[in-house]
Design a protein around this nucleic acid. Sequence first.
DNA 1: TTCAAAATTTGACCATCGTCAATTAACCCA
DNA 2: TGGGTTAATTGACGATGGTCAAATTTTGAA
Lengths: 244, 244
Amino acid sequence: MVEQGGGTSGAGCMGCPLRQRSEWCVLNEEEIRFLSRHLKKRRYRAGETIFSVGEPSHGIYCVALGTAAIRKGDAEGNTVLLRLAYPGDTLGYRGLLLGENRRYGAEALGPSKICFVDRAVVKLLLERNPALGQQFLRRIASDMDEAHDHLVRNATLSNRDKFIHLLRALMNRHGRTATDGGQFMELPLSRRDLASMIGARHETLSRIIGRLEEDGIARFSGRTVYVARSHWLLNESRPPTLLD
Amino acid sequence: MVEQGGGTSGAGCMGCPLRQRSEWCVLNEEEIRFLSRHLKKRRYRAGETIFSVGEPSHGIYCVALGTAAIRKGDAEGNTVLLRLAYPGDTLGYRGLLLGENRRYGAEALGPSKICFVDRAVVKLLLERNPALGQQFLRRIASDMDEAHDHLVRNATLSNRDKFIHLLRALMNRHGRTATDGGQFMELPLSRRDLASMIGARHETLSRIIGRLEEDGIARFSGRTVYVARSHWLLNESRPPTLLD
DNA sequence: TTCAAAATTTGACCATCGTCAATTAACCCA
DNA sequence: TGGGTTAATTGACGATGGTCAAATTTTGAA
């Protein structure tokens, strides 16, 4: 299950199509070879755990293929899906940087390939190439911005609008344009997870979905969603001010 | 208004009591002297703006004395108070790292002293002392954790519980123990800002406060709050965490 | 394919929250 | 100190969201 050498094609990180999109893009050829030799690539099946809350942080993970979900729970046992990670995204850098145990868990949402880079390898590369540290700083800073935007939206929008925003974000990643200009998407998440992402109960989400269908904004069938072109742009955010 | 040399006593950063609590603790004596010479320290009056959304990021700010508020708005003009910053906290590193304009604003909540460090000075120190970069990484990683905890709470708790959590966090910073074992605090924020921190309208917060008084959990009078010892620990809210 | 478990939907009901509007209290500056 | 402005509270009421429970669909494993 575990193979040496990164990249989706077996040619090592050198041939990895997402090298340019990840922080590793600043490494030179020799450093990439070093990384290739020392990372562990592994396939995950749908639902498989990548790492869990509370375990020590031995290294970082790099999504090569598929989608991963970041989950976090509170003291009461409520669990929230914080964000999704896509190819090129790096997971678990915080625990590594702070030398702490993992404070959130990650799992594969579908069949995925994910590379693991041991803490020692990261450390060595960071020392060799300071630009890599810069890259990580930039990455975290940008994650921070995202988290803050998320906080503002959650404090500001209704559940319905939060869900619409979420749908649009998901559509950007998972959607395809249909022949009529509308968009199709296969949802990567269960209703429960979708609900947890907007801080609502799953029953509430069901009703929101029902209302979106009534209003003719979208059609849901299992995990497939269809949104007509005409309805897609004008929902940006604005609360449905009376009649529309 | 602007003076050279950091620290609250005029002895430069060297004598700054919060040097050990900020990222600058890794600098050696010479580097601290360099920092002292090149930072600009400035007093702010209550409500004064430190920096605003949209303006270019020329450097970072370091709270020496007082309390600063981080504000962010969304497209509709709603504004949210994201977090408070206290002595030792660094503001504005994200815009600097990403080379972007400020995506949030900061203002002094009361009379404050805040040091400004120009981007060029930061860059120089970062190059001279890689440990400083590490410190920043750790700081951001920890801010990130806080933001995620905040997201989980917002998705999970009722407004009432979110407010109790907020009160407890504020009490940790601003509270004093009374002779009877209860705690007093002078709130640093208006009701509107308190409400925005938990994602509620100010009218709703007024009612939450009313209910807390009815339930005998706390007493509010203007900006002073009193909480009896007996009610402090057992309230339905969860674990005591830091501000965020 | 078949069946049991899990996920989803739906209904009923109540608590909470947002909005509008009207007061009342606090604040700031001349 | 007065007067005008902002902040805070309160009431009424409709909308939204949570909870419990039951019905229905989907999923996964044998």
